[in-house]
């Protein structure tokens, strides 16, 4: 993926994450779990980048590795061309001013014992930004920008007095208050109703247009990714299968897995518009020995012999469209 290095804000290179099993239970040593295998991605300034995958695909792990909630097993992460892998102490704190995260479950991500004002102004006091009055002012501003108005009415409320949508807005406000360069939104709407999700989506779009925040949007929904994102990466079992612009991925998916994913969406509306690919096997194919090839091999209808043994790397098909498959 060699492109102009200049405007990539986040770049992850060959990142792997292995969860090592801790000791042995009843003499049976559990296998190490490979959550991510050699993942490389680039996120450009000002874009919303979608990371789409099913549960267990490792999409959340990517986000957690970037913000440093988990340690990287191998590979490197760059922020503005600066290596930010395994930062500690002051450097880590400085990094955290620039990179923030919005968590999946707004019912869990706010401290029940702290008021909205406490929660939103906390990052400011951690990084010693302004005085108490300034912080209140800044919290006011950011709460207003996420649509909680009048902000004063929310300052002294506690999370249990907020609806799910309001909580997620507070969480977004907390992430935005430091004016970060890059925000990761990890399935921010999976716990919310459709009409509320739409509000959250629109706030994220607004954050981009007014504050020029680059975002990574992690989701299991291709439709949501299409709505929000400029580019989409599809991830399966810890490996990136396909990267391209939103419309390319939806209209012209080339990887068999992406095709299967689109096939599986409920079809009542638009069965005429979106073609069927039929790239998914009904029953999984047996793999001999350790799985070491393409992760989609066991279910792929177009797999060849080498797919079982070799891992296909991302190849460029056309400008900005990459696919990890031998058969495309």
């Amino acid at each position: 993926m060699m492109e102009n290095q200049g405007n990539a804000i986040i770049e992850i290179q060959n990142v792997s994450k292995v969860y090592r099993s801790r000791g042995a239970l009843f003499g049976v040593r559990a296998k190490d779990v490979v959550a991510l295998r050699q993942v490389s991605l680039k996120i450009y300034k000002g874009e919303i980048f979608g990371l789409v995958g099913e549960s267990g695909s490792g999409k959340t792990t990517v986000g957690r590795l970037i913000v440093g909630l988990e340690e990287i097993t191998s590979g490197e992460i760059f922020l503005d061309q600066e290596n930010v892998t395994g930062l500690k102490g002051k450097a880590l704190k400085a990094f955290r001013r620039k990179v923030q995260m919005i968590f999946q479950d707004p019912y869990q991500s706010l401290n029940p014992q702290r008021s909205v004002l406490d929660t939103v102004s906390e990052p400011l006091s951690i990084h010693r930004v302004g005085r108490s009055a300034d912080r209140k002012e800044m919290a006011h501003k950011v709460l207003k920008s996420v649509g909680l108005s009048p902000p004063e009415a929310f300052f002294y409320r506690y999370p249990h007095r907020l609806s799910g949508g309001q909580r997620q807005r507070v969480a977004i406000a907390r992430a935005m208050v430091l004016n970060p360069e890059f925000v990761i939104a990890d399935e921010p709407t999976s716990m919310l109703d459709a009409s509320i999700s739409a509000q959250i989506f629109n706030i994220l779009l607004k954050m981009r247009s007014t504050f020029h925040v680059t975002q990574m949007f992690i989701t299991h929904s291709l439709a949501a990714a299409r709505y929000l994102c400029d580019r989409i990466a599809v991830i399966y079992r810890g490996q990136v299968m396909e990267v391209g612009s939103g419309e390319t991925i939806i209209r012209n998916p080339r990887h068999p897995y992406t095709q299967a994913l689109i096939d599986a969406l409920p079809k009542f509306k638009g069965s005429g518009e979106i073609k069927q690919y039929g790239t998914l096997l009904i029953e999984e194919r047996e793999v001999n020995g350790e799985p070491m090839g393409c992760p989609f091999y066991p279910r792929c209808t177009v797999a060849e012999i080498r797919c079982e043994r070799e891992i296909p790397g991302l190849r460029m098909l056309e400008e900005g469209h990459y696919v990890a498959c031998f058969n495309v």
Partner: peptide
């Protein structure tokens, strides 16, 4: 109508979602 327009879709033109 409001509910339908708050769901993102894969088909058709990308239209702005209108939350309720």
């Amino acid at each position: 109508r409001a509910l339908l327009s708050s769901f993102p879709t894969l088909t058709g033109k990308r239209t702005d979602l209108v939350p309720i």
